[in-house]
Simulated scan of single mutants.
Amino acid sequence: MSIVPIRAKWKVKVKKIDGAERTVEIDQDATVRKLYSTVRQDLRRNWGFQDAIQLFKGPTLLVKNDTKMRDSGICNEITLSVVVQTGPDKWDLFVTLPGRSSPSTITLNETATCDDLYKKVAEIHGNGRPLCVKDPIGDVLSEGKATLKESLYDGARLTAEYRQKWSLIILNQGAKSTLTVEVSANAYVRDVFVEVRKKIPVGEGLILNTGTKELNNCMNDKISSVGLTHMSSICVVMRQKGGSDPRVQMLQNCPNKDVVGVSTPSIRACPYCGALVQHTDACKHMACPACSREFCFICLRKKEGGWQCGSYNSRCSPASRQTYIPG
Rank of each mutant, 00 (worst) to 15 (best):
residue 305 G to M: 00
residue 171 L to D: 00
residue 110 E to L: 05
residue 211 G to Y: 05
residue 158 L to D: 14
residue 202 V to N: 02
residue 242 G to I: 09
residue 62 L to C: 10
residue 64 K to G: 01
residue 205 G to R: 05
residue 32 V to M: 00
residue 146 A to K: 12
residue 40 R to P: 04
residue 89 D to M: 03
residue 135 D to P: 09
residue 5 P to T: 03
residue 113 T to V: 10
residue 321 R to Q: 02
residue 170 I to H: 08
residue 77 E to H: 09
residue 218 C to T: 06
residue 143 E to I: 01
residue 141 L to Y: 09
residue 179 L to D: 07
residue 6 I to P: 09
residue 85 Q to N: 07
residue 89 D to N: 09
residue 85 Q to V: 03
residue 260 V to M: 00
residue 300 L to P: 04
residue 278 Q to P: 03
residue 32 V to C: 02
residue 277 V to R: 01
residue 261 G to H: 12
residue 29 D to S: 15
residue 257 K to H: 00
residue 15 K to C: 15
residue 204 E to M: 01
residue 223 I to T: 08
residue 153 Y to W: 14
residue 306 G to N: 00
residue 123 E to Q: 12
residue 311 S to Q: 07
residue 85 Q to E: 11
residue 118 Y to H: 05
residue 25 E to V: 09
residue 285 H to R: 10
residue 233 S to T: 01
residue 139 D to C: 13
residue 140 V to F: 03
residue 169 I to S: 06
residue 279 H to S: 09
residue 269 A to L: 13
residue 257 K to T: 01
residue 113 T to Q: 06
residue 179 L to S: 07
residue 186 N to A: 10
residue 66 D to M: 09
residue 262 V to L: 03
residue 48 G to T: 09
residue 135 D to I: 15
residue 142 S to L: 12
residue 6 I to D: 11
residue 286 M to N: 00
residue 314 S to A: 14
residue 74 I to F: 05
residue 227 G to A: 13
residue 325 I to P: 03
residue 10 W to N: 15
residue 115 D to T: 15
residue 327 G to N: 01
residue 296 C to R: 12
residue 51 D to E: 14
residue 205 G to S: 11
residue 120 K to T: 08
residue 282 A to Q: 12
residue 302 K to N: 04
residue 283 C to K: 05
residue 193 F to W: 02
residue 165 K to R: 13
residue 149 K to H: 12
residue 13 K to Q: 15
residue 53 I to K: 02
residue 179 L to T: 08
residue 10 W to V: 08
residue 204 E to I: 00
residue 185 A to G: 10
residue 20 A to M: 02
residue 196 V to Q: 00
residue 98 P to A: 03
residue 126 G to M: 03
residue 196 V to H: 03
residue 198 K to Y: 01
residue 84 V to H: 03
residue 75 C to H: 13
residue 267 I to C: 13
residue 192 V to R: 06
residue 4 V to N: 11
residue 219 M to F: 07
residue 202 V to M: 09
residue 247 R to W: 05
residue 123 E to M: 07
residue 227 G to C: 08
residue 114 C to L: 15
residue 53 I to F: 02
residue 64 K to W: 00
residue 314 S to D: 10
residue 180 T to I: 09
residue 145 K to P: 13
residue 270 C to Q: 07
residue 54 Q to L: 07
residue 295 F to P: 05
residue 94 F to W: 09
residue 21 E to H: 00
residue 63 V to S: 14
residue 76 N to E: 08
